[in-house]
Design a protein around this nucleic acid. Sequence first.
DNA 1: CGATATCTTGAGGAATCTCAATACTAGTGG
DNA 2: CCACTAGTATTGAGATTCCTCAAGATATCG
Lengths: 253, 253
Amino acid sequence: MTHIDFAYPRDSNTQTNGKTDPAGEIHPCSACTVRTLTVCAALEAEELRRLAEILQTTRFDAGHTVFGEGDPAETLYNVTSGTVKVYKLLPDGRRQITGFLLPGDFFGLSVNDSYAYTAETVTPVSLCRFPRRRMEALLDEFPKMQRRLFSMASNELAAAQDQMLLLGRKTAKEKICSFLLLLSQRASRRGHKTNPVHVPMSRADIADYLGLTTETVSRTFTQLKTSRVISLLEGNKVQIQDMDDLLDLAEGA
Amino acid sequence: MTHIDFAYPRDSNTQTNGKTDPAGEIHPCSACTVRTLTVCAALEAEELRRLAEILQTTRFDAGHTVFGEGDPAETLYNVTSGTVKVYKLLPDGRRQITGFLLPGDFFGLSVNDSYAYTAETVTPVSLCRFPRRRMEALLDEFPKMQRRLFSMASNELAAAQDQMLLLGRKTAKEKICSFLLLLSQRASRRGHKTNPVHVPMSRADIADYLGLTTETVSRTFTQLKTSRVISLLEGNKVQIQDMDDLLDLAEGA
DNA sequence: CGATATCTTGAGGAATCTCAATACTAGTGG
DNA sequence: CCACTAGTATTGAGATTCCTCAAGATATCG
């Protein structure tokens, strides 16, 4: 986690692959499609303007590392399009993905002054960048933003607890079903179709998110397909045949 | 999680088993031993006084449920002595403990208006209770408190990510070693001895925290004892024989 | 259309769980 | 002070889920 269900939207004057530009005159926020989901949702015009002042937009290809574990934490990010994964590694390379970040999600919070995890793009991604110092200054100035951010952190904590329950106590099948439901629910919150669920990440990424191997993920998908709970469609889409079934399967009921 | 490394200390005019009393005249905070660890650390005298005004102290025996998953979230808590566990259940009774709360830790944050987990005492416990509404009002009034709380929530998120890595990717032995180190480090932060580590919780609780069974926890302890990494002492204490060994074992190195 | 990565499927193995018995500990009452 | 009880911890044996290793199928991209 430490990606927060914040939000900030798309813009036109963006550039590609790490090149950023001040989002100056045009006030990009006005066009933002994910604003309602995030910090920005709560802001007055003035606050939004000040936020826009310090913000830059960036674009990355798929598979790009936004920052690595241990890097100095100088920037906060908000996803405006695409999917980002954040993960931690063990010395021998075992990996745990702690979250997938979708448009409107916020990430880059740090504890001391370095990131405690790596952030990498799963698909091509657009981001808003907030310099940390300036963001902190804004938070001090606008308690409402602070509070909003805190409330989003609380949501994150709740999600983290759910994920711990999943990792510690659910079976492979329950994990996969929970995962599909999560994607469906997050799509719904974003106003997208909930049913054919878009699953942009690889089997390996799903495995590292659920504490499984790619083989087990693949086998479990096959099994769910065979028992007619889901079907796999073109373009990384998963059709949920019976939502109630899936809900039960996700909790072992 | 959603227990936050906040703090608030012991007091004299406390009562037992759920009975509370206004912590009025005497200003209990002045005697607080865990104040430095928590929200209170950052506060001015005035802020502290206001906080003390809305606070009540409570005491519970071991094994008492402070609140249950789904209960209306009307109170925030701060542990001043003893240990509390917070957990979530699956319909069939499988349990995941998402955190053990020690003196100075804060808990009771909620997402909508109900608790997303159950909180239960492990040992006899003293708590400070803050009515949620009044606490929120104070947070609005004192941005510094808000910010402190947010920073503690960020710490929680980082801890949650560590726990996900543990649950998803570590072996039983690595889990147990990590757990002992965690207890040792938390003791250290509280100014307690780091080496014979006090482990107040049962094997079953440890198992439910680490995503194992009690049998596996027990076997792993025996194994670590046999290989002279730790030894088990009287009174739920664990002596760490070689801290560096343990650090390596915790990460699979 | 070929090269490369990703996904699926198979067979066997290993870590952990389940079930079951025994040992220990702490508290209770004689 | 000592047995007795109830809960907790340890140990054992076998079962099971999931992992590992390996091959083949499918998809993706230049």
